[in-house]
Amino acid sequence: MTKLKSAKDIPIGGIIPEPGNSRAYRTGEWRSQRPVWIPEGCVHCLMCWVYCPDNAIEVEDGKVKGIDYNHCKGCGICVRECPRKEKALRLEREA
């Protein structure tokens, strides 16, 4: 937990001048189940990516690179929507 700032140290009006700083907030801790990506079975159709509410499917150059477990909440949409089914994405219980 970061130290709370004083009134004189925060911008006026409640504004947040750091765009996209929520990346530092880890919603991955919410997860009770995790999608596991199987690169060899993946055809990089990106259905998992376009349907992810949390932008947690890492894509580079049009190809899936992995899963952002810092933010993935484990909703399971990617696994459900993957046309390769169990071959490319599998849902596992969190340890």
Binding site: L4, A7, G13, G14, I15, I16, P17, P19
Partner: peptide, 17 residues
Amino acid sequence: NPVTVGPLVLPDYLFEM
């Protein structure tokens, strides 16, 4: 320089504002 105006502010900061 994108700024977020009107966020949800909880008890940790609203009083300071």
